[in-house]
Lab assay of single mutants.
Amino acid sequence: QSYDVTDELPLPPGWEMTFTATGQRYFLNHIEKITTWQDPRKAMNQP
């Protein structure tokens, strides 16, 4: 797995990073009650 500086940034409020039983990373948004494979920190860093 390649290193990404985004991995060091804190998640936005309400978000949690977790893993499936097979080790795949995904993200939970407790405020909007959604899950996604997309890292919400990457969207924050788009110009």
Score class of each variant (00 low, 15 high):
6 T>G: 09
28 L>N: 04
46 Q>D: 15
19 F>D: 06
9 L>R: 15
9 L>P: 14
36 T>L: 00
47 P>H: 03
41 R>N: 04
23 G>P: 01
44 M>N: 08
11 L>S: 03
36 T>K: 00
25 R>V: 11
11 L>F: 11
9 L>C: 10
19 F>K: 12
17 M>Y: 07
29 N>S: 06
7 D>F: 06
41 R>A: 04
7 D>Q: 08
19 F>T: 10
30 H>K: 12
27 F>R: 02
26 Y>L: 05
41 R>T: 05
24 Q>N: 09
28 L>V: 15
4 D>K: 14
20 T>N: 11
29 N>M: 00
36 T>R: 01
17 M>I: 11
6 T>M: 14
14 G>Q: 04
20 T>Y: 01
25 R>E: 07
10 P>K: 10
26 Y>F: 07
5 V>W: 03
17 M>E: 14
23 G>A: 02
4 D>Q: 05
43 A>M: 13
10 P>A: 11
35 T>L: 02
35 T>E: 05
24 Q>S: 08
28 L>H: 03
4 D>W: 05
43 A>L: 14
2 S>H: 15
15 W>N: 03
37 W>K: 06
24 Q>C: 06
6 T>H: 06
27 F>W: 09
14 G>W: 04
40 P>R: 00
19 F>S: 10
8 E>G: 12
10 P>G: 10
25 R>L: 08
24 Q>Y: 05
25 R>I: 13
4 D>F: 09
24 Q>I: 07
41 R>G: 03
6 T>K: 12
15 W>C: 03
16 E>M: 05
40 P>C: 00
33 K>F: 03
28 L>G: 03
16 E>R: 05
24 Q>W: 01
32 E>Q: 15
6 T>D: 10
35 T>M: 04
47 P>S: 10
44 M>K: 13
31 I>L: 05
9 L>F: 11
14 G>K: 04
7 D>A: 12
26 Y>V: 06
28 L>D: 00
4 D>P: 12
28 L>I: 15
42 K>T: 11
39 D>M: 01
28 L>Q: 07
35 T>I: 05
43 A>T: 15
46 Q>E: 15
33 K>D: 04
27 F>C: 01
27 F>I: 00
14 G>C: 04
17 M>H: 05
18 T>Q: 15
3 Y>V: 04
22 T>A: 11
5 V>N: 13
1 Q>M: 15
22 T>G: 12
31 I>H: 15
33 K>A: 08
15 W>T: 02
15 W>Q: 04
31 I>P: 06
45 N>K: 12
22 T>F: 06
2 S>L: 11
13 P>Y: 10
7 D>C: 08
20 T>Q: 00
31 I>V: 10
39 D>E: 03
16 E>F: 06
4 D>R: 09
39 D>A: 02
22 T>V: 05
13 P>R: 11
12 P>E: 03
21 A>L: 07
5 V>P: 07
18 T>R: 15
26 Y>T: 05
34 I>F: 14
39 D>P: 03
15 W>I: 01
45 N>R: 10
43 A>R: 13
14 G>A: 06
44 M>Y: 14
45 N>H: 11
4 D>H: 08
30 H>V: 07
40 P>H: 00
33 K>W: 01
5 V>G: 08
44 M>P: 12
44 M>D: 15
46 Q>M: 10
2 S>M: 14
42 K>W: 06
14 G>V: 02
5 V>E: 11
43 A>G: 14
35 T>F: 03
28 L>F: 06
15 W>S: 02
16 E>A: 08
17 M>F: 08
38 Q>H: 10
8 E>L: 07
18 T>N: 09
1 Q>A: 04
14 G>N: 12
18 T>L: 12
17 M>T: 10
26 Y>W: 03
39 D>F: 03
3 Y>L: 06
13 P>I: 08
41 R>M: 02
22 T>N: 11
36 T>H: 00
2 S>R: 12
22 T>H: 08
44 M>F: 15
39 D>C: 03
38 Q>M: 13
34 I>H: 06
13 P>V: 12
30 H>P: 08
24 Q>D: 14
37 W>Q: 06
38 Q>V: 10
13 P>N: 13
14 G>H: 08
45 N>A: 14
15 W>Y: 06
9 L>K: 12
44 M>I: 07
41 R>H: 02
19 F>Y: 11
36 T>F: 00
39 D>Q: 00
36 T>P: 03
25 R>F: 04
5 V>D: 09
27 F>S: 03
42 K>D: 07
9 L>H: 13
35 T>D: 02
26 Y>E: 03
21 A>I: 10
21 A>D: 13
40 P>G: 00
43 A>C: 12
30 H>Y: 06
2 S>E: 07
25 R>D: 00
27 F>P: 00
24 Q>V: 10
25 R>K: 14
36 T>S: 07
4 D>A: 11
41 R>F: 01
1 Q>L: 09
22 T>D: 15
20 T>L: 04
20 T>A: 06
35 T>A: 06
4 D>E: 11
5 V>R: 10
26 Y>K: 04
21 A>S: 14
43 A>D: 15
45 N>G: 13
45 N>Q: 07
7 D>T: 12
38 Q>E: 10
38 Q>I: 14
44 M>Q: 14
40 P>L: 00
12 P>H: 01
6 T>I: 13
30 H>T: 10
11 L>M: 12
34 I>E: 07
26 Y>G: 03
33 K>Y: 02
25 R>S: 08
18 T>P: 01
44 M>T: 13
35 T>N: 03
16 E>V: 08
5 V>C: 09
37 W>L: 06
10 P>M: 08
36 T>M: 04
41 R>D: 01
30 H>L: 06
23 G>T: 00
6 T>Y: 08
19 F>G: 05
19 F>C: 07
18 T>Y: 11
18 T>E: 12
38 Q>C: 11
6 T>R: 11
28 L>T: 10
32 E>C: 12
8 E>R: 10
43 A>E: 14
27 F>A: 01
19 F>I: 14
13 P>K: 11
11 L>A: 02
42 K>M: 08
16 E>N: 03
2 S>Y: 07
10 P>S: 10
23 G>N: 05
15 W>K: 01
17 M>W: 05
40 P>I: 00
9 L>M: 14
1 Q>E: 08
21 A>N: 14
6 T>P: 14
14 G>R: 03
26 Y>Q: 04
18 T>I: 09
27 F>D: 01
32 E>T: 14
4 D>M: 04
45 N>Y: 15
21 A>Y: 06
2 S>T: 11
34 I>G: 03
43 A>W: 15
34 I>Q: 09
